[in-house]
Nucleic acid binder design. Structure first.
Lengths: 134, 134
DNA sequence: ATAGGTGCAAAGTCTTTGCGCTTAA
DNA sequence: TTAAGCGCAAAGACTTTGCACCTAT
């Protein structure tokens, strides 16, 4: 693959901005200092990079796709209130691939775990507003 | 919630068609016998039903959302070749919620595991075409 | 009677793509 | 030199929504 400044910047942005950015986030983040950047280029490169295994695409119900620069084994928690995505390490999944291959004839390339719920901050806010009502 | 014939049909379709149908599938499936049905109604009801916990919405990278009428604990394998979705039961996830609550302050509502790879049929086809080349 | 649901079509949102120009190799 | 990549804008895919009509309660 031919080098491009844009791709380098996009990869850097996903790696360094640990918010699991959307394509739009990456675009606006870079647009400030690189006014010629186009959204199409961002999409093209995010897809390229995730196909190449340089970044991960995270698919979340009722939300747009996000990208993750961390390629080590970890999983994701999504807050239903604020829509933020948090990382988590889980021990009990270490045997997952093993179990799948022994129980099915499916060739496993990868897997993702998406935990949905409410983050600490939002839970706190919800508790506060409950108090106000009662 | 007020009863509607359309909603009943849509729920029945998702429950009985174990292909993890997309909204479009449900629409065309029912349209045959119910020509007045509109796609908007299908979307509205699929979203309603999944919010109510009657069905599950499955979000798959690079594919449209699918719906699942099985509400018991199980997970999903997606074939990257044919895009079909298969169910799988996994034992090692039984302690997952426990581990998350003990390790984080995240309130877990649910989680989904999406395993990507290649199904048996497609793997076979891939092997065949390799043979042809060599 | 009336709140909620439907059908329809239009509008939205997010993403991809065609094309002429640019640039890394 | 030239194939890959870019910027732009238009098109595409999928989903939501406003509104007038309909229907379960």
């Amino acid at each position: 693959m031919k080098y491009s400044k844009q791709r380098e910047l996009i990869l850097k942005t996903v790696r360094e901005n640990r918010v699991h950015p959307t394509a739009d986030y990456v675009y606006h983040f870079l647009k400030k200092d690189h006014p010629n950047l186009s959204l199409g280029t961002v999409y093209r490169n995010l897809n390229l990079l995730s196909e190449n295994g340089d970044i991960r695409k995270i698919c979340i119900p009722n939300a747009r796709d996000r990208f993750d620069g961390r390629m080590d084994r970890h999983y994701h928690m999504v807050c239903q209130e604020c829509a933020e995505v948090f990382d988590i390490e889980l021990n009990c999944l270490s045997k997952l691939e093993e179990e799948i291959s022994s129980r099915t004839d499916f060739t496993v390339h990868g897997y993702d775990v998406i935990i949905t719920g409410v983050c600490h901050t939002c839970q706190h806010k919800l508790n506060e507003s409950k108090k106000e009502v009662s």
